Amino acid sequence: MVTAVLCVLALAGCGSRVTGTAKALQITDVEHTLVTSYFTALNEAGTQGVTQQRELLADTQHPDFREGDCELPDGTIRVQPTMSTLRLDPDWTPPGQDEHPRGVVVVVAVTLTVVQDGIEIGSQIGSQHLVLLNGKTYGFAPCAT
């Protein structure tokens, strides 16, 4: 009888289920604020001039992907994110790379406008990936195509 009780207890331990509901990872207010602050700083730097914006882009380039700098278009960029589209993108890797960047990858729809001498010369709608790492938002500088 003792053996039977031990067997039942052993089987119960192996087959027990964890109660609760699985929840998908979600964007919190912290991530939302980090992303919003990134775009605010980027656009403010653009109003200060080309040099200031390029310095900010260099400072916020993901630390693992800094050697891949590219030439920015002449002028500055203004980026308007659609924050309601902000979501996690854990499987994303930068184009041409095999490894996932360190940190939490998020993606958001943006309207990117190139401004030269105060005149909008082009606008494009797309997705922008950012990485949240150690309380800071990092990006991947846009390249002229």
Rank of each mutant, 00 (worst) to 15 (best):
P90S: 03
L42S: 04
C143G: 05
P142T: 09
F39G: 00
Q97H: 14
G118I: 00
T33G: 07
G13I: 06
Q124E: 14
S123E: 11
R102V: 14
W92T: 02
I121K: 06
L86I: 02
G20E: 05
L130Q: 03
G139P: 06
T19I: 14
D91S: 11
T3A: 14
T36I: 05
R54L: 14
L9G: 15
Q128C: 06
L9W: 15
D69Q: 13
Q80T: 14
T28I: 01
P142M: 03
V110Q: 05
V30D: 14
V79G: 02
Q61V: 12
P81Y: 00
A24M: 06
A45Y: 01
Q97T: 13
V104C: 05
T93A: 13
S127W: 03
R87Q: 08
T33I: 09
A144Y: 06
Q97F: 15
V8Y: 13
A109V: 13
L112Q: 06
N43E: 05
F65S: 08
T33W: 10
G103D: 04
D64A: 09
T111M: 08
V8H: 07
C143D: 06
T47Y: 09
Y138G: 01
V105C: 04
T93G: 09
D59Q: 15
G13W: 13
S127Y: 09
R66V: 08
L86N: 02
E44K: 04
Q53P: 08
G49P: 04
V108L: 01
T36F: 10
A109Y: 03
G139Q: 01
T28R: 02
Q61K: 13
P90G: 04
A41D: 12
L6K: 04
Y138C: 01
E71G: 10
